[in-house]
């Protein structure tokens, strides 16, 4: 008996270590490539282009400075920020009311609307850039921040609707009803009760919209020429730019994403849990 028990315990311990080892390996699988990019960015240009590479980067900011002063790069960064902000504002201000309507009302056509929103998932949305390029020329929105932001909003809107829907659904309707019986009209009840409660979640979905826009390459590359965003700028310079510039640009793209995912991490799962249905 005791030996059998010992073997079981031994197996358990082994399984435990395998579990931990797998976890560590998978964490490394995610983190090491990012570190390599950043380490390249923090090396000197000659280190980046040398072979074999030194193990520890020389930790200087020469590449970053080079990137920021490189023709068009700073502008691209600024354009990216503008487009992402515009996307964020449009996606939330258009999506949140729809999410609220879906969570609070039963009405004719509700399902049709849900289907429309879900349908966007089956479509390769960046392709929207093609017809929009033509439309925008007609209305004078070609190569503008707002034009690109509109296409990015189309990408972010379905998420904004579904996420805000789940946020509002998470707040018992009785809270709102209680506010009505205590002297609020609909708007007051929303402002005094619902808004304070959904604000963190709303911020998270706004950040999510920001990230979607920040990362989008295809539409940005198709729709902008003078006002390139950072990804579009990097894509365009893939062929001719020196390696260290690419890596510095890549790091500039990655860093905000790291921070943003950290900020919204609590909401990621709640968002996707509901988006499943």
């Amino acid at each position: 008996m005791s030996t059998a028990g010992g073997r079981v315990a031994g197996n358990d311990r082994l399984a435990h270590w395998v579990f931990i080892a797998t976890t560590v390996v998978l964490c490394g699988w995610v983190l090491v490539p990012i570190w390599l990019l950043i380490s390249n960015t923090l090396s000197t240009a000659s280190e980046v282009n040398s072979f074999p590479k030194p193990v520890v980067p020389s930790l200087n900011t020469e590449n970053i400075q080079f990137f920021l002063t490189f023709h068009g790069a700073g502008n691209a960064l600024w354009n990216s920020i503008q487009v992402a902000f515009a996307t964020m504002i449009m996606a939330i201000s258009v999506g949140a009311p729809a999410g609220y309507a879906l969570s609070r009302f039963d009405f004719r056509g509700k399902n049709a609307f849900r289907v429309l929103v879900l349908m966007t998932r089956a479509f390769p949305l960046p392709l929207l850039a093609l017809p929009m390029a033509i439309l925008f020329i007609r209305v004078g929105l070609d190569d503008t921040v707002i034009g690109l932001a509109i296409v990015h909003t189309t990408l972010a809107l379905p998420f904004a609707v579904l996420i805000t829907f789940s946020l509002f659904s998470g707040i018992p309707i009785e809270l709102e009803e209680a506010a009505w019986t205590l002297g609020c009209n609909r708007l007051q009840a929303f402002r005094k009760v619902i808004l304070p409660l959904v604000l963190p979640g709303l911020a998270a979905s706004a950040i999510f919209a920001f990230v979607i826009s920040w990362n989008e390459v295809f539409a940005a590359a198709v729709l902008t020429i003078e006002h390139r965003t950072l990804p579009a700028f990097l894509l365009q310079s893939l062929d001719d730019a020196p390696l260290h510039l690419k890596f510095a640009g890549g790091t500039m793209l990655v860093l905000p994403a790291l921070i943003f995912i950290f900020l919204v991490r609590k909401y990621l799962f709640a968002m996707w849990g509901i988006a499943n249905r």
Partner: peptide, 29 residues
């Protein structure tokens, strides 16, 4: 662990390409 594993969610495909370029390039890691 969850945070680490979900980091790539926020990384654009272009940046991911560049990250792996740093590995597979002729002067890469």
């Amino acid at each position: 662990v969850l945070y680490i594993w979900t980091i790539p969610l926020g990384i654009s495909d272009l940046a991911a390409g560049l990250i792996w370029l740093a590995i597979f390039d002729q002067t890469g890691f």
